[in-house]
Write a protein that binds this DNA or RNA. Structure first.
Lengths: 188, 188, 188, 188
DNA sequence: GATGAATGAGTTTTCATTCAT
DNA sequence: GATGAATGAAAACTCATTCAT
């Protein structure tokens, strides 16, 4: 049922999908959907939250696999790429809710996802913070800023790939992205 | 009239704003709106296109003010920050249409804005390309990738600031953003 | 102005023509139309009445041209054919108002035209009445019935021609129609 | 539901009846009407087609009840009179669509009914054709013309009766109509 | 428990009519 | 007098939600 809803919402957007369509695709009756979810917003919200959790869990796990900060970032970029490529249909919604402007549901309902996203950003920031303490990283910016920057760049590339996968292949090698941060554009 | 529409669309999203609301806020009658725009989609589209053009023009001008590549980037970041801060209400829509998933209007109508955005990315990429030719920039990535990366990072910071301006002040100094690119996080 | 209105009403029907269209076609402003006619209904009504009068006047004149009853009928059929062929655009409206069901304007407004039509039917009936008195006609029915019958048959043929002029040419010779009445289908 | 729609359309015309009115009269909700019919046009069309079929079927059956051509015509006139008197409310619509100018729905949708009407006219014409072959009928005109003429005359009388039933009683005896054709007005 | 027919509030859009210029 | 911009009432249609079966 969630699968059907995800696909439809992602393809046409919240407001262009009717409960009837979802019921059809899910091969359930409308009434049954309302047994599981309070209303359309509830369905959308729990769907988004579930997926966001899946994403963040996968990313958190990837980061925790190793103690080396550089390797952590590499794992992060690799996993983000993999997870998103495996869930193309959800990514558009995920971006809409976290990075763009979510107009899908009335204001206030989206903050739950934003909050989870914010929490994950802090996890990511910790890597930079620790790396700086270890002197593995130079102090070129505040850790949280760097976390936001890295995540934004990954999203930027993913979006490019999403729009035209053959013209803009998402970099196979995570270092293509990481080097932008690791190597200085100007300084030696 | 456009101002009223922009504010409402930006606040509540295309589908959560009725023509009646727009008419009320604009202090025009519904009929009058339909004299100026073919329909709701037409109003939204021309509004978005106009604003996107304004943004891209401002950014293009900022870039062209100087010949020095580094100064160009600095101008770009400064101007992007300034323009977006002066147009808070439109930025959410602009992001929705260019960076997120636009579900506002049926597929195909949004490509016009995406296309303009893509064209501007190429302009931005040119700076990196020339900088590399001049040896002002090291070749740490493909020019277009760097353009996407820089723009994404700016958007990331802007979004942060948009969500909670006091907690996340958008960096006053453009170098806070640029240093992430200029200085290597790892290399020397 | 009337010409433009007639053409549009006849082509698309009262409800599918807007005052704006009429104003455009007539090369007048909307305001000017409202100087001449109280409202859309007024325009339609006076237009219809004027045309109906023209038709009935032409037919009445044709009848009065001669004293011979058979010749009167012949003139009637000939003139009806001629007048209608010369005013194709109005005929559809005329039929809608007199023979079909006029749903163009709210009930009660059409009776004026029906009444004029009824009056003319009496004029036509008089021919049959006199013809019977003169023994030029056999008494095969009530004069008014015969008038209605003749007029109906003419309309039937005109309608046929109107729908597909090349497949159903309106009889050149009025006797094609009149013979149906003059000659007995069964009796010798 | 159809009954309510027929009555309202027939009384006020397609454009002067709102879906709300129909829903009220039918004691259904607007939404329910749209479950059964795609839109207002769809409701009108299926309503008209159904009724036209009923009429034509009844007339065709009446004709086929006997082999005698004169009796066929008598049955035709009798049945037409009966069926129309039993369906007063639909007759106005039927006339509007078949004999008058249908401006109810946009061009092209009405041809279905016209076509059915045309087909029936050919059935009627066959009676005259066969009657002429059998020498039951004199050859006073082309069979199709005679069919059109007979049908037109019936319609003329029905219309008269429809407008003012007490002033113009529809002839009880079908021969009142048929004699106009059977007996010659002029010839012996 | 599951269903899906029925509901009707809410939306977009049109267009006859007015009236300030 | 002529104009046509502005109005807003009214209409078609959709769809989230309910509830009797």
């Amino acid at each position: 049922m969630l699968a059907a809803a995800i696909e439809l919402f992602s393809e046409k957007g919240y407001h262009n999908v009717s409960m009837y369509e979802i019921a059809q695709k899910a091969e359930f009756s409308i009434g049954t959907i309302y047994k599981f979810f309070k209303n359309k917003e509830g369905l959308y919200k729990s769907l988004i939250v579930e997926q966001a959790d899946r994403f963040h869990d996968a990313l958190t796990n990837a980061i925790e696999e190793t103690d080396d900060e550089i390797e952590k970032l590499r794992n992060y970029v690799k996993t983000k790429s993999k997870v998103f490529k495996d869930n193309v249909s959800v990514v558009r919604l995920y971006f809409a809710e976290t990075r763009g402007a979510s107009f899908n549901i009335k204001a206030g309902l989206d903050c739950e996802i934003r909050e989870r996203y914010g929490r994950f950003m802090h996890t990511l920031a910790l890597i930079f913070e620790n790396g700086m303490k270890n002197n593995r990283f130079r102090k070129i910016g505040r850790p949280y800023d760097l976390a936001v920057a890295l995540d934004s760049v990954c999203n930027g590339f993913l979006l490019l790939w999403l729009e035209s996968p053959e013209q803009n292949p998402y970099p196979e090698n995570p270092d293509v992205i990481l080097n932008i941060f690791f190597k200085g554009l100007v300084d030696p």
